[in-house]
Every structure is written in structure tokens, then in C-alpha cells.
Design a protein around this nucleic acid. Structure first.
Length: 892
DNA sequence: TGGTAGACTTGCTTTGAGATAA
DNA sequence: TTATCTCAAAGCAAGTCTACCA
């Protein structure tokens, strides 16, 4: 306890450092640059009215393209981390923090943003103010709880700082910095000292232990009650998932395996592999890994696997191919099962036993409006089909796509095919779509002007039509379908500089759609009279209900899946987090292994080591190869020479377009060995050449699987995000439970680590201006009140009002009260303003939905009796239903 | 062994309804 | 009452990763 309190005090002290925000320490000598956010630049250029297309001038939101936004970054002193030490997550955090001066350069608003710094600083203040709360809730200190690898990067930050001076001497003390109430088994103590193999065994065995629900006799706080099922929908109110979901009245009739890569030269020492397998076997014993659906199925009669297809029409080649593959897949799975290589929850590939659903619903047929576009100033008659495509373009006149020649070129190519060779319209430049745009705007306005009753009636009508498509019955359980509506035709809105943007997404018809449904279930009626489905399958090894070929990339598919709240998705989610938790037990071995290989003579080994380091340290994505007909984006394995610039002595400057063409810019201080390796990989290569030329995601992941069963590159993102949340909630949620502000901070930190960004909203600038005006106004009021108070105290009357009338003669107490109220109001508005500014480009939702283990939050809520609804909205409650029965002592 | 089909997960944008402020 | 803001939900684009095949 003493030690923990002491460390907590250290945290407070660190927080007080004016040099930077609380835990985000970095070397003062580090230099960093924050590049100009291009989205800001874009916004500063007023849109020109595109006269030719009749494009209205607008303040349209910038596309989320290449220059939209950048990763906020700082250099981190990674090189100061001992070679066998993991890169601290705190360093990542530090990376993510913009310097104030840099931030200034990216803002259009007059006021420099405090960015995350501001929020964290305010948290700091609150922590200081509520210090006693922290002390009162601290649990007893566990001796030397776990190795530093078990700590999130943010936690290690502090440790790292100390280590710069004292090496590993303070390891034990730092290890417990952020732990409060969790009881870590003694077996984990000092496990840095244990042989890796035995450590893996111990940890794998211990790994899921805290996860088990201790329902018996335990006092359930609010969260436990509300969350048994997590679903907030009114038809799901029973107390457990199983009870709630079983649809008694519906009879079933009416209603990956992990490929074990062979050991390569780059494999880790034998004992590691042994322990991996043992750890895996331990995991299989844990019933938590058995999917809920599998548990339900215990008494169900399994449907025959590899059921033959009932074909309505001849399938396309790949479909036939895929179907024929199934029997092989089954055999392989069985084999794995015998050798304990089947993942615990795979169910040998079977995902369901009975499946009933109603298929999909189609968008209504096109209704011609008869509004004519102008060609060279004259109205042109169009057929309904031609008009439909023209309308798709017209409604996009106020978007950024109009600034993209590729978009217009692709659109015109496809429209021309519909217009015909000899049509009067030959060039897009001479088309004026304004009449259709105006018509569309007026339709929107009409819709807006509808009365509440009219809107309600319309909504109910829609619901009535869609109700039957919204649900599927999976193994007798009613589950929500995710996307039962077929995508309507439109123009493809590729992100970044997608070569296919603007192309016509043709209307999808029943004959494009393959349905997957239980063998005994009735085949859904085709909703369009006279047409039929492309194919009916009964494949219970997949979870999709229907699919069609993507009209833009016909070799790709669009699937209809169950909703995120479904048991199947929930189970899959849980497995994802369990895998990430397992990584916690292996991370030290992995980091030691890749550190060793930084200087390997085998170039492939060396590249794998450096790539793994970057994925672990910077949360980079794996980086699969891209086709020429996709946007030119990269991930770790596809980084080009021009994307990484080494700056001596050991800084790497990253600048590339990642997923969704979101720009990633970061300057990082790395291990000297990594720096040298990158220099070597870049040697004698051109700007567009791959840095990791001996590597791709398959090789990388195959290697990772040798280190931990099922490990892939993306697990590192989940691991780092969740362990950060676990760490930060321990501190911040605890201290700021009343408003759960700490949770927001943690989410924000994770969002920044993962580079989750969003486009600044159209109205952001206006909102900020309004807030500033209000604050100024209140400050004027405050000033006046203070003057009045001074006068009243001297026995003089208050000043006259601005309209010349006299004020009510308030006494000093009333005036002081008013001053206090006004001051509080100003402070609140300042905080709101800071938050709004800080979060304007940060997408919190993504990390909350995809990376943060919900059990961390649920367990914390249980420990502190905070209703989980304060943290999760309705849909997250439903999505995370599987997490609601977590033990309050759960730690990631 | 490399290429790729297929099956998912991840992640940003848009939409629209309800809440709040003026 | 209207305008504005907020946020959840929906939409769909764009990733990852496995298994299979030539």
C-alpha cells in the first residue's frame, strides 16, 4: 500500500510537470514536427463555384483524403528503453501529442488549442483535488505483481523514465504503479526472472482466471443487473443471454482453424514453442473459450457439414470452386482437432445448426422526376435510366468529389454508356446539373417540413415493411440482422485518391444475390415479382446470410451478416480480446526475440524483427499488398523508402497514407539497431521501393504464430489499446467517476495511438465562434459585476445598465454569488470549448467499438457501482452483452 | 511458394431523431 | 417555435487474414 501510494504520488508529481501532460514524458532534447493538417489547409481555400456543372458554392466537408488529417506526433525516447524492454505505450502517447506551437499552425481558430494536453491537464487538476478519493480506494500492494511487460505503455512511461537512470533497479516498484484492487496471483511475481517457457505456462494458466464470473452470492451493483444481457432492446429483458434469446415458440424447422506454420529458421527457441502449445492447451480447457452458441448446441442435432448446394442457377466460377473446397476444409479441421490445433472456439468450423431468415430487402425502383439538366444552356430530355444516373451526380454537386477529376471522368465514362454513342451530351463540361440539384434540395426541405405525425407514420410504414427482414433465427435464438437492406445504386465514393471513384454502382437485383440458410428452413420469398435468387446455399461454416458481388470490384463481395449484438458476433469479439489478453503473457518473450534479431545476419529475420517492433511500438497495421485499382495506401509491410526518413542519430520520420487514406505522420526515436536496420533496408533503393522487400503479411504473421498461437499483426493493436484503457481507467475513471471524464481521456489516448481520425465537422468553426462570443459576453458581465461589487462595498450605487436604466441595488453577498456563478459558467464553457477543439479530429467511437475490451469498463463499473449505461450506449450494451457478467476483479 | 478467393473486422461518413438553446 | 447541437445508428469503404490452388 505504501509503495503504491508512493507511486501514485509520483504520478501526481509527474502530472505537475509543466513541460508536458501528465504521464507523457519525453526527453527534453527531442525535437518533433507536426505537419500542417491538410484538411485545415483545404478548408481555408474557398470552394469555387463550378460553373460548368452548376455546382453550388458550398462549405462542403472535405473528403477524408490524403491531406485530410495527420497523426499528431512527438518523438519518444525509445532508445532509452533497455533493449529487452518493450517500447512503453506512454511513448506512443507522447508521440501522439502535438506541440502547442505545432497545433497552432494547424488551427484556423484564433486560439491555440490545448489539444489533449489541455484535457489531461484538467484531469491532473482534478486528480490533485480529489487525491483523497484515490487513496481511499487503493487496495493493498501486491508484491512485485508482474513484469513491466504486463503494464501498458503509459504505465511504463514512468518506469522508463526511471530506468534511464537506474536501469532495471526500480522494476518491481514501477510494476504496481497503476494497479489498485486487482489481486494478482503470487505465481506472477518476479516472472521476469523465470525461464520463458515456465513463465508461459504459468501465465497461460492464470490468464483467464480473473475472467470467470463469480455470480454466486456476490453483491451485484447496478451494472450487473442491467447488463446480464447487455441488450437494451425491449424484447430482450430476461436475465441471461441464453434465457433471453431462446425463442421457444419457433421450431428449428420453421424458423478456422489456425494453420500451424512450419518452423522456420527464424523461429524462436524450442522451449518457447513448447510453452506456446502448452499455453494453448490450457486455454482450451477454459470454458470461457467455448462459444455461447456452441454451449447451446450441446443438445442440438448437428446439421451435416458440407451440405450439398441447392442451386437455382449456375454459380460463378469462384463460387463453385469455393463450394468444392469445403469437404477438404472439414477434413483438415478434424485433423487439427485431433492434434489440439483447433482453436478452442472454432467448433470445427461449424457456426450454426439451424438458420432461418427472410432474405434481404431491395431499395424501391427509381421514380423519374422529369427535371431536366441543361446542356450548353438548353434543357435535355433523358430516359428514366439516364436521369437516374444524372441525379446521382447532381446530388453530389456540393461535395469535394466535384474537385476530383478522376471522379468526374469515371462518372462520365459510365454515364456515356447509358446515354449512348450518339447522344447530344458528349461532354460533362457543358452539362449543368443545377436544376436537378435544386429539385433535390427542395425535396429534402419538404421532407424536413413534414409534421411529426407524418414523419411518424412514414417511419411506422417503413418498419412494417422491414420488420420481417430485421431478424434471423439462429439455433432457435432470435438475432438481429445487421444490414438486411441491399445497397441502392449510386456513384462509388472511394476514399483518398481511389482510381474507381465516381463509377456507377449498378442496381443489385435478386439474380445477383446468393442466400445462405438452414437446410430445413423455408427459402425466403424473392421480394421482386418474377425474379429469383441467384443461388441458395446451406453452408453452416460461415456466418453470412446473403452476399452479392461488389459492382465496383466484381471479384469482391458484399455480405449480409448478423448484427453486432448477435451471439455469433459477440463470441467472435470475445475471442478477439482473449487473444489480445493472451499476448500479454507472451509479450516479453516476443519483444526479447525481436530485439535480438535487430542485428541478425539473416535479412528476412532482421526485417521481420524490425517490422514487428514497429507494429508493436507504433500500432501500425500489417499492410497487405494492394491492387492497382485500389487507393495507394500502405501499412507496415508495404512501407516505401519515401515513407520513412531516418534522421541521425536515431529518429525515424514516418509519412504515409494508411487505411482510408488517413495520413500518418510521426517522428519517433527508435532503438539504434532499428535505426541502422532501416537505413540498411533503404540502401540502394528508390523512393517507391518497399523497405521490407523480403517480407509480406503472410510471412510476418506466420512468424508471429510461432511465437504465440493465433498471433497476427492486428492483435498488437487490440492488445495495446486495451491494456492502455485498463491502465488509465484504473487511475482516471476511478478519480473522476462522477462524470466518467477519465474514460473519455483514456478513449482519446487510445484513439490517438491508433490514429483514429475524423473529418472536422462543417459547423465546427461556427460553433467555436459562437462559444467564443458567449464567453466574451460573460466575461464582460463578470467585469461589470466586479466593478459593481467594488462600488457597493464603498457604499456607491452600481453602474447604469447599457440601456441607460439603473440596476437593482444588490447587496455584496448577492453580487459575490453572481460573480461566482458567472465564473463557474465561464469555466464550464472554456472546458467545453477545449473539449470540442481537442476532439474535432479524433474519432473516439472506433476504438471504443473495436479495440477496448468492454470487460475492463464493465468490471470497473461493478467495482465502483457506476451504471454501465453511463459509459455504453444502447447499441454498445447490446454488442457487449457477452461482457456483462465479468467478474468485478477482471483486469486485462 | 505466390497468388487470390473468400470471410470476416475495422473504420470513416452520413443521416436523422431527440435534446437543448435562443 | 425554431435553430442548432449532439449522438446513435446506419451505410458502406477498406482493411486483415486464412485456406486453397496452380
Amino acid at each position: 500500500m505504501t509503495v503504491e501510494a508512493c507511486n501514485k504520488q509520483k504520478l501526481m508529481d509527474d502530472m505537475d510537470d509543466d513541460d508536458g501532460p501528465l504521464v507523457f514524458k519525453r526527453s527534453s532534447s527531442s525535437s518533433s514536427k507536426q505537419k500542417q493538417s491538410n484538411s485545415e489547409t483545404k478548408r481555408s481555400v474557398p470552394h469555387k463555384h463550378d460553373q460548368q456543372l452548376g455546382r453550388p458554392a458550398s462549405n462542403a466537408r472535405p473528403q477524408n483524403g490524403q491531406n485530410n488529417s495527420v497523426q499528431r506526433s512527438k518523438i519518444v525516447p525509445a532508445s532509452k528503453t533497455p533493449p529487452d524492454r518493450p517500447p512503453p505505450l506512454s511513448q506512443k502517447l507522447s508521440n501522439s501529442l502535438p506541440k502547442e506551437s505545432e497545433v497552432k499552425s494547424t488551427r484556423v481558430d484564433s486560439r491555440p488549442s490545448t489539444s489533449m494536453r489541455g484535457e489531461l491537464t484538467s484531469v491532473k487538476r482534478q486528480i490533485k483535488g480529489e487525491n483523497s478519493l484515490s487513496g481511499s480506494t487503493c487496495g493493498p500492494k501486491e508484491e512485485s505483481e508482474d513484469s513491466e511487460d504486463d503494464k501498458p505503455l503509459s504505465a511504463r512511461l514512468q518506469a522508463g523514465r526511471s530506468k534511464i537512470n537506474s536501469g532495471n533497479a526500480d522494476k518491481g516498484a514501477n510494476a504496481s504503479n497503476f494497479r489498485q484492487t486487482s489481486k494478482i496471483p503470487k505465481s506472477e511475481d518476479s516472472d521476469d526472472e523465470m525461464p520463458l517457457s515456465s513463465k508461459f505456462r504459468v501465465k497461460a494458466a492464470a490468464g483467464g482466471s480473473t475472467n470467470r464470473s463469480s455470480t454466486s452470492g456476490e453483491k451485484k451493483p447496478l451494472v450487473a443487473e442491467c447488463g446480464q444481457n447487455g441488450s437494451a432492446s425491449t424484447d430482450r429483458k430476461s436475465s441471461t443471454v441464453l434465457k433471453k434469446r431462446i425463442v421457444d415458440s419457433i421450431k428449428p424447422s420453421d424458423a478456422s482453424s489456425l494453420k500451424r506454420p512450419k518452423l522456420s529458421e527464424t523461429s524462436t527457441p524450442h522451449k518457447n514453442k513448447d510453452s506456446s502449445i502448452k499455453a494453448e492447451m490450457k486455454e482450451e480447457d477454459d470454458e470461457d473459450h467455448v462459444p455461447i452458441s456452441q454451449r447451446i448446441k450441446k443438445t442440438a442435432v448437428a446439421e451435416k457439414k458440407s451440405a450439398p448446394i441447392k442451386k437455382l442457377t449456375a454459380p460463378t466460377t469462384p463460387i463453385t470452386k469455393k463450394f468444392n473446397k469445403k469437404p477438404n476444409k472439414t477434413i483438415k479441421n478434424t485433423k487439427y482437432s485431433e492434434s489440439s490445433k483447433v482453436p478452442p472456439s472454432s467448433g470445427e468450423g461449424q457456426k450454426w445448426t439451424t438458420l432461418v431468415h427472410s432474405g434481404v430487402i431491395f431499395p424501391p425502383p427509381y421514380k423519374p422526376h422529369g427535371v431536366k439538366i441543361l446542356y450548353k444552356g438548353k434543357p435535355v430530355d433523358l430516359t428514366p435510366e439516364q436521369e437516374e444516373v444524372a441525379t446521382m451526380f447532381a446530388v453530389m454537386l456540393d461535395t469535394e468529389y466535384m474537385d476530383k477529376p478522376k471522379f468526374k471522368e469515371n462518372f462520365m465514362d459510365d454515364w456515356r454508356k447509358i446515354l449512348g454513342k450518339n447522344h447530344i451530351i458528349q461532354s460533362l463540361e457543358h452539362c449543368d446539373f443545377t436544376p436537378i440539384y435544386d429539385w433535390h434540395q427542395s425535396e429534402k426541405e419538404k421532407k424536413k417540413q413534414m409534421t411529426t405525425e407524418e414523419k411518424k407514420a412514414l417511419k411506422e410504414e417503413k418498419l412494417k415493411q422491414e420488420e420481417k427482414y430485421m431478424w434471423a433465427i439462429v439455433d432457435g435464438v432470435k438475432e438481429k440482422v445487421g444490414n438486411f437492406r441491399v445497397e441502392p445504386p449510386g456513384l462509388f465514393r472511394g476514399r483518398g485518391e481511389h482510381p474507381k471513384m465516381g463509377k456507377l454502382k449498378k442496381r443489385i437485383r435478386p439474380s445477383d444475390i446468393t442466400i445462405n440458410i438452414g437446410r430445413d428452413a423455408p427459402i425466403p420469398e424473392c421480394p421482386i415479382h418474377g425474379q429469383s435468387w441467384k443461388e441458395i446455399r446451406h453452408d453452416n461454416t460461415v456466418t453470412w446470410l446473403a452476399f452479392w458481388n461488389d459492382p465496383i470490384n466484381p471479384k469482391e463481395f458484399k455480405y449480409v451478416f448478423l448484427a453486432a449484438s448477435s451471439t455469433l458476433k459477440g463470441q467472435s469479439d470475445k475471442e478477439k480480446y482473449e487473444k489480445a489478453r493472451l499476448l500479454k503473457n507472451y509479450i516479453q518473450g516476443i519483444r526479447t526475440a525481436y530485439t535480438k534479431d535487430f542485428t541478425s545476419k539473416d535479412p528476412t529475420k532482421k526485417q521481420i524483427a524490425v517490422a514487428t517492433y514497429l507494429i508493436d511500438k507504433l500500432a501500425l497495421r500489417a499492410g497487405n499488398e494492394k491492387d492497382d485499382d485500389e487507393a495507394d495506401t500502405v501499412g507496415c509491410c508495404t512501407l516505401k523508402v519515401e515513407n520513412v526518413e531516418p534522421v541521425p542519430p536515431n529518429i525515424l520520420k514516418f509519412d504515409f497514407l494508411g487505411k482510408d487514406s488517413i495520413r500518418y505522420q510521426n517522428e519517433v526515436e527508435v532503438e539504434v539497431a532499428v535505426f541502422r536496420a532501416i537505413q540498411e533496408f533503404r540502401n540502394k533503393k528508390k523512393g517507391g521501393d518497399d523497405i521490407f522487400d523480403k517480407l509480406d503479411t503472410s510471412k510476418l504473421n506466420a512468424h508471429l504464430k510461432e511465437l504465440m498461437p493465433g498471433l497476427t499483426a492486428k492483435v498488437f493493436r487490440t492488445y495495446n489499446a486495451s491494456i492502455t484503457l485498463d491502465d488509465m481507467t484504473a487511475i482516471l475513471l476511478l478519480l473522476l467517476s462522477r462524470e466518467t471524464k477519465g474514460g473519455e481521456v483514456a478513449e482519446k489516448v487510445v484513439a490517438i495511438i491508433c490514429n483514429h481520425q475524423r473529418t472536422v465537422s462543417k459547423s465546427h468553426s461556427a460553433q467555436m465562434t459562437r462559444l467564443n462570443e458567449k464567453i466574451d459576453e460573460l466575461k464582460g458581465v463578470l467585469e461589470e459585476l466586479r466593478t459593481d461589487l467594488a462600488r457597493v462595498k464603498k457604499g456607491k450605487p452600481p453602474l447604469m445598465r447599457s440601456d441607460g436604466k439603473s440596476k437593482r441595488n444588490l447587496n455584496p453577498d448577492s453580487l459575490e454569488k453572481k460573480i461566482s456563478q458567472t465564473t463557474a459558467k465561464i469555466e464550464k464553457m472554456e472546458r467545453d470549448k477545449d473539449t470540442k477543439e481537442d476532439l474535432k479530429t479524433v474519432a473516439l467511437g472506433t476504438s471504443k467499438i473495436n479495440y477496448l475490451d468492454p470487460r475492463i469498463t464493465v468490471a470497473w463499473c461493478k467495482r465502483h457501482e457506476v451504471p454501465i449505461e453511463k459509459i455504453f450506449n444502447k447499441s454498445l450494451l447490446a454488442k457487449f452483452a457477452w461482457a456483462m457478467d465479468v467478474d468485478p476483479g477482471f483486469r486485462f
